[in-house]
């Protein structure tokens, strides 16, 4: 019950922000030169004035901006995200189609990056300033500094084109008609390269945060006490240091949830995955206002949700935080 109340309070507090973001974005996009009909003409490589006029009224672009905005907000109140100009169907169903791909991609790579980053961070902290630390930190930095499209493309060139080990792109084999476990395996197979690419980029951040906070916690009094009690080195690290050092990493997950939905544009493009990032990019290029606002809306809700979960986890890891509430 307390959790539910907390959740509701959080949601209510973020409603004004959400509204501001949506209205702001709506107005900002009015400043972008060209509308979705211009973008359509550009894609078709030709058009004529009669057609453009009809399409403008079809997409409701012939009304003044304020009227358009009011219409949009009124629909939003009724939980209707409107109609997508590019895809010719409701925005909600367009987003729902893409959401699983993005959640799978981002969820897997974040978990992988978090787990590996933690393990490597702990390892680096234990051997601080020795060669394992130097090696791990250098590698982390290299991964962090490399652009993801380059990683992705190199992965495709080496593993898909030269070695033929992995597929070059796509979410699954089209028309192969896999079902059940076979389909799952097929999707996993297609996701190996994109997940690795994304995870390597995230990895460095978690690794460095983990290493730093481990080193910091290791100097605290309670660690000395634990050691003095005669606990083994591993026991001290896992039960006392790690738990405390986890908090900054967790904060980072909460922050990165914001980039989760849109942040994978490059990887989704290189590997041709039908995710939300590509959808957002496409919506900007095609000036598909409804879809873009819909994505922002859904991302914002998701960020609120993830941060709420992170808060609950804080309380679990560190009882002092719960006590303060």
């Amino acid at each position: 019950m307390r959790i539910l109340l907390l959740a509701l309070r959080r949601l209510a507090a973020s409603l004004p922000t959400l509204l501001l973001i949506l209205v702001g974005l709506f107005l900002l996009l009015q400043l972008a030169p060209g509308d979705t009909v211009d973008a359509l003409m550009a894609q078709m490589g030709g058009g004529d004035p009669a057609m453009m006029e009809q399409l403008r009224s079809f997409y409701g672009l012939d009304a003044p901006v304020l009227v358009q905005l009011t219409r949009y907000l009124w629909r939003l109140v009724q939980l209707d995200l409107g109609f997508s100009a590019i895809y010719g169907k409701p925005v909600s169903s367009v987003i729902l189609e893409r959401l699983p791909v993005t959640l799978l991609l981002m969820g897997t790579s974040l978990s992988f990056a978090f787990a590996a980053g933690m393990a490597l961070g702990v390892l680096a902290a234990r051997r601080v300033n020795k060669w394992p630390d130097a090696l791990i930190s250098t590698l982390g930095l290299i991964f962090y500094a490399t652009p993801s499209f380059w990683f992705g493309m190199m992965g495709v060139v080496v593993f898909a084109i030269k070695l033929s080990w992995l597929p070059a792109g796509g979410f699954e084999d089209i028309g192969a008609g896999h079902t059940g476990l076979a389909r799952l395996a097929d999707i996993a197979w297609h996701l190996v390269l994109p997940v690795t690419t994304l995870a390597l980029i995230f990895l460095a951040t978690y690794l460095r945060i983990m290493r730093a906070s481990m080193l910091e916690v290791l100097t605290l009094d309670f660690v000395r006490t634990a050691r003095a009690k005669g606990l083994s080195q591993t026991g001290v690290l896992l039960r006392h240091v790690l738990r405390n050092a986890l908090l900054p990493g967790l904060t980072l997950i909460g922050l990165q949830a914001g980039t989760m939905l849109g942040g994978a544009v490059v990887v989704e493009s290189v590997f041709n995955l039908p995710g939300l990032g590509r959808l957002a990019y496409e919506s900007v290029v095609q000036r598909d206002l409804n879809t873009l606002l819909g994505i922002v809306f859904v991302s914002a809700l998701l960020v609120i949700l993830v941060n709420f979960i992170v808060d609950l986890l804080y309380a679990k890891l560190d009882p002092r935080i719960a006590a303060e509430r």
Binding site: M153, V156, I161, A168, G169, V270, N272
Partner: peptide
């Protein structure tokens, strides 16, 4: 197959996709 990234399309061509 809808492949908007041109380099990705080349990769798909080279792998026979």
């Amino acid at each position: 197959r809808i492949i908007t990234d041109r380099s990705a399309a080349t990769a798909a061509m080279e792998t026979g996709a």
